[in-house]
Amino acid sequence: MSRRHLARLELRVMVRELLAALPNMRLQADARPRRTYGVIRGVREVAVEWDAAG
């Protein structure tokens, strides 16, 4: 497995665990991801919101 594929797998696992830990988190209705460009491309930030656990 290449480093690139391993990094993608690690990121996928991290996001899955984050979503499991914060089940009430969701994208804001009008959210648009801010992206990075150039050599390293990806998402810089995404607006989210969540309900308080009750």
Rank of each mutant, 00 (worst) to 15 (best):
G54M: 06
H5P: 07
P33D: 05
M14N: 10
M25T: 00
S2N: 14
E45P: 09
E45F: 10
I40K: 08
V48A: 02
L11C: 14
L9E: 05
V46A: 09
R26Y: 02
D30Y: 04
R3G: 12
P33T: 07
Y37S: 15
P33A: 15
A7P: 05
H5F: 09
R32M: 08
V48D: 02
T36G: 03
R16M: 10
R3K: 15
A53C: 05
L6E: 13
R12W: 00
A53Y: 01
A20P: 04
A53S: 10
R16D: 15
W50V: 00
L9V: 03
R8K: 08
S2K: 14
L11K: 14
R34W: 03
R8C: 06
V48M: 06
H5M: 14
E17Q: 10
V46I: 15
V46R: 10
V13D: 11
R16V: 09
P33I: 02
R16Y: 09
V43K: 07
V15I: 14
E17Y: 04
N24F: 04
R4A: 10
M25G: 04
R12I: 01
R34T: 07
E45I: 02
R8G: 01
S2I: 01
A21K: 13
N24G: 06
A20F: 00
H5L: 15
E49S: 06
A21M: 12
A53G: 01
R3Q: 14
R44F: 11
A47E: 14
M1T: 15
A53E: 13
P23T: 02
R12P: 11
L6M: 14
M14R: 11
R4N: 08
M14A: 09
A7Y: 00
A29D: 15
A31F: 01
V15D: 14
M14L: 08
V48Q: 01
R8I: 05
A47V: 15
E17S: 06
L11H: 06
R41V: 03
A47I: 09
N24Y: 06
L9T: 04
R26C: 08
Y37N: 15
L18R: 05
R12L: 10
L22K: 02
L19Y: 01
L6R: 15
R41E: 11
G54S: 12
W50K: 02
R44D: 06
R26W: 00
G54Y: 09
G42K: 04
R41Y: 08
L22C: 10
V39H: 07
G54C: 05
M1F: 03
I40C: 12
E10H: 07
R32T: 12
A7S: 08
L9D: 02
